[in-house]
Design a protein around this nucleic acid. Structure first.
Lengths: 231, 231
DNA sequence: CGAAGCCTTGATGCGCCTCAACGTACGTGG
DNA sequence: CCACGTACGTTGAGGCGCATCAAGGCTTCG
């Protein structure tokens, strides 16, 4: 049913014996989540952890005042909902399918046993957590020191590089993303994002449409992200 | 030389057998770092990891433009410089002694062996990383959604609660901290911090002096941190 | 075909940065 | 121990970046 060879090449399973992996994967249930579906919620008891096989997932936190902040996007091949790896038993955020998604789901109960049986899996997972911590710190630095224009440019470049698809015009972010989404990644408003995108489109750096952004002049956009406005 | 019983009660060593711990501690070297001393630098190969026994350490990142951002303060009893726990072999930030400090230093080489020999130590450590990731995410949300006044109030309350010392006037942050330090924790300028502290002192919420802050009306300050300005 | 969601663009104002100047405490060396 | 230099702190004036408020156009979907 599931193609083991594809999965065994994913980073979380690097260095794990193929036969061992088969056993591990047989413990998982494959699920489909349609676009917009909330997969889990902040504070909820973590009943499962997940490996995204296909699609894109938005990880979101919500403030007491009801404002949303996007913590990160998960791409296929990444683990998510790994509360246990953070030493928690509840999810720290909400996960929403940005497009139709397919994921493997393991019951939380097998976590302990799994990391004991597969030390390489444990190592890989903790490294992932380390990378996410480093990225979070980077983002704090960015929010503390850069202007909105730079942050918006950085966010778009990051998405384009991470999940982009090459097209005739340039690199297109390959899932639907609104002005509001970008504002929630960068701590600004959809209005401000819209203005910058309009300006960049006018200057030929990007092409954009409803829920769709293509980076055409990555180099120029990088200059803006670095605060070297091309006046 | 070192009092094992004091150390065995620290969170990182919770659940570790006392005799085992003695062996582990004998592998460490105790060092003194005087105020202002840089203990390690961002990007440097991680030769050691540390347990702070006494003092306070500032963890700082520096932008290409030379601006500083304070990632966190380490209090006594906490691990720091644990690059290996993040799956890295270089330090992700700079560590500076905020006051005269004493720390245990282990050579990085024994990390792998240590976490294998003491699974509880591994668990405790990864939980610490998880907590720090969660805190970093919290801070991102804060920077994205709250005004400077709220962030400054939150930062001061956090420091007071975490490292505060009860005095006649209230809770005093028990290490020297400048307006600039606070601005580097909250993504603002020392001028703005100074103005808010002056205003709060005028309203009787805090007392402050050179490098010294005492919270006298924690409740009122909490209201400000939550955006419920007392007009 | 209508309604809801997404996007754009202008006008206005405020929060906070920037620039500037001065006051004050610390500590170091003569 | 005093004098000076340096680091830290305060406060004002001015202006800019960006949020906010407002109105309208366009696309998608039921």
């Amino acid at each position: 049913m599931l193609d083991i060879s594809l999965i065994s090449n994913l980073p979380p399973f690097a260095g794990i014996d193929r036969d061992d992996l088969t056993g591990l994967i047989n413990l998982a249930k494959s699920s489909r989540f349609e676009k917009g579906k909330q997969i889990f919620s902040e504070g909820e008891t973590a009943h499962s952890f997940f490996l995204l096989l296909d699609g894109h997932i938005r990880v979101v936190r919500i403030t007491p005042g009801g404002e949303q902040v996007i913590a990160r996007y998960i791409s296929s091949g990444e683990l998510f909902g790994i509360a246990q790896a953070l030493g928690r038993d509840t999810y720290p955020a909400n996960a929403v399918a940005a497009v139709d998604c397919v994921a493997l789901c393991w019951p939380t109960g097998i976590w302990q046993e799994t990391i004991e049986r597969f030390p390489r899996f444990a190592t890989n997972t903790y490294k992932t957590v380390g990378v996410r911590l480093t990225e979070a710190q980077d983002r704090i630095v960015e929010m503390a020191t850069e202007r909105v224009e730079q942050r918006v440019a950085s966010a778009i470049l990051k998405l384009a590089n991470q999940t982009g698809r090459q097209t005739d015009d340039g690199i297109e972010i390959d899932f639907p993303i609104s002005r509001q989404d970008i504002s929630e990644m960068t701590g600004t408003t959809l209005h401000t994002v819209s203005r910058f995108l309009s300006a960049w489109e006018h200057d030929g750096l990007v092409k954009s449409a409803r829920q769709r952004i293509t980076v055409t002049q990555g180099h120029q956009l990088t200059l803006i992200a670095n605060g070297e406005k091309s006046d």
